[in-house]
Design a protein around this nucleic acid. Structure first.
Lengths: 110, 110
DNA sequence: ACAATACTTTCCTATCAGGAAAGTAACGGG
DNA sequence: CCCGTTACTTTCCTGATAGGAAAGTATTGT
């Protein structure tokens, strides 16, 4: 089963956008990612490396004609991590994450 | 209508937990929040102040017998912000946030 | 008088994130 | 052949933030 799991690496806004974007698009080019997410070259490069190191994305370097092109896509692990993170968010937000909540002692008696 | 709006203040993991917890419980005591979220007194105190300054929670100080008790609950604004943030997350994750996506040019031609 | 409760504030550290700029490598002119 | 451009990557630096520890405040209980 796909148990919910909050993933801090994915949770960070820019990486969440990146991963979600890749989940929707498959292979995406460096420039497309950069412009869609609105990052500088350096910032994107670093985030891609972070996600690759985590095993969440795969990076492909090809040549289009004689010019290099860098693309990325989610790995299976990345897809799973995103799915599980989404479930974790759902539980937190809907309060279904009652596992972390007490029965209902939100006010204490002295 | 409740338009989606990504809220960085709410997105931070601990504050997301706090706000979601309050959304589910109404008034909650300082200690309950501290233990549920798993923060130190100081860290919780600061996050509550941050959320109060943002107008997302209301803080009530009462006395139970002779001992002070601090409780918090979501304000209407806080509830709205959480709802809108949840919608924003949904859009990002489901890729429904297509507003930010190009038609489908995820790979470019030279 | 002193410890304890219930926080709040201050101090300090560790952790990013992101932009700018420099570095790398391969072309493509002039 | 030297220079500028493309396509990134790496280094450098800054600014923002989070969180614990410790000290501060106020009041109560022994």
């Amino acid at each position: 089963m796909n148990t919910p799991r909050f993933d801090e690496l994915i949770h960070a806004p820019t990486r969440l956008s990146l991963v979600a974007f890749l989940a929707a698009t498959g292979w995406a080019d460096f420039k497309v990612l950069r412009d869609s997410i609105g990052l500088s070259d350096s910032a994107l490069s670093k985030q891609l490396t972070t996600l690759e190191d985590a095993g969440y994305i795969e990076i492909r370097k090809t040549f289009v004609g004689k010019r290099p092109r860098t693309s990325a896509r989610l790995t299976t692990n990345g897809r799973t991590a995103l799915d599980r993170h989404a479930l974790a968010l759902q539980e937190i937000i809907t309060g279904a994450g009652s596992s972390m909540l007490p029965a209902n002692p939100t006010t204490q008696q002295p």
